[in-house]
Design a binder for these strands. Structure first.
Length: 241
DNA sequence: GTGTTCGGCTG
DNA sequence: CAGCCGAACAC
């Protein structure tokens, strides 16, 4: 139960496969016997419980690309093996023979980025704009920039005061990210779903504008320079400077 | 297919 | 309890 390497719920004959589309990791389940693939656990379960032997729930194909050659969708761990979503303006010099070569180039790239980051952080100079306009705040406000926004769950754009208790509001506190290069912003997004209060941290790179869901993700990007290695694809917010 | 949220596992 | 991340959900 502890090791999630083998999904127990997965019926025999099924294998777990991964595919990378647009930098997003997609897991799907592949039925070796029939060649069908399913995107979610539900699909597999409903398909297997309803019709165990043979039923073609999705594609009614007797023969498709799976027949002759099962080219396993092996993930490419090397950054130089798949088309990189390089931003315009960046060019790939050559294909690297060794890892060190690639690493050297990455280092250059990161030096540059580091410089940009540093300059950016200095330019901002930690603008601690303290604005607490909240009336029903029961939490101690930190002396950092606080931003509050709320979304009306229903269709009432009014009465924002008491709504904080019944609707989902989002408050974000921005603080300099800890354990990351200067300039990075850590945001604690406080949201309310149902009656549960969530506090999720996000990390924003001021240079690229990527907002990472976790510190490890941010570190991964810093280290490899490729968001493909992140556990979750970061949203990219434009930096208004 | 893409973005968003939820929920749960782990340290 | 907080952080992280997969997966479900929704657009």
């Amino acid at each position: 139960m502890v090791d999630g390497k083998s999904p127990e719920w997965l019926p025999p004959g099924f294998t777990e496969k991964f595919k990378y589309k647009n930098g997003r990791k997609i897991k799907y389940y592949y039925n070796v016997a029939t060649g069908e693939k399913y995107h979610s656990k539900k699909d597999v379960i409903s398909a297997t419980t309803g019709n165990v032997s043979h039923g073609t729930p999705q594609t009614t194909n007797d023969d498709n690309g799976f027949s002759s050659n099962n080219k396993v969708d092996a993930i490419s761990p090397e950054p130089n093996d798949s088309p990189d979503p390089l931003p315009s303006g960046w060019t790939v010099e050559e294909k690297h023979e060794t890892l060190e070569d690639a690493r050297d180039q990455l280092t250059r790239f990161y030096s540059r980025a580091a410089v940009a980051r540093y300059l950016n952080s200095v330019h901002h100079a930690n603008t601690t704009s303290l604005q607490n306009k909240l009336d029903n705040v029961d939490e101690p406000l930190p002396d950092m920039s606080l931003q509050l926004s709320m979304t009306s769950a229903g269709s009432e754009p009014e009465k924002k005061r008491k709504m904080a208790l019944s609707s989902r509001f989002v408050a974000s506190v921005s603080t300099p990210a800890d354990g990351l290069p200067p300039g990075w912003i850590k945001e604690i997004i406080t949201s309310k779903s149902g009656s549960k209060i969530r506090r999720d941290p996000f990390y924003t790179d001021p240079v690229s504008g990527h907002v990472f869901r976790s510190k490890p993700d941010a570190l991964r990007f810093l280290k490899t320079g490729d968001i493909r290695y992140c556990a979750s694809r970061p949203k990219t917010r434009i930096i208004s400077n």
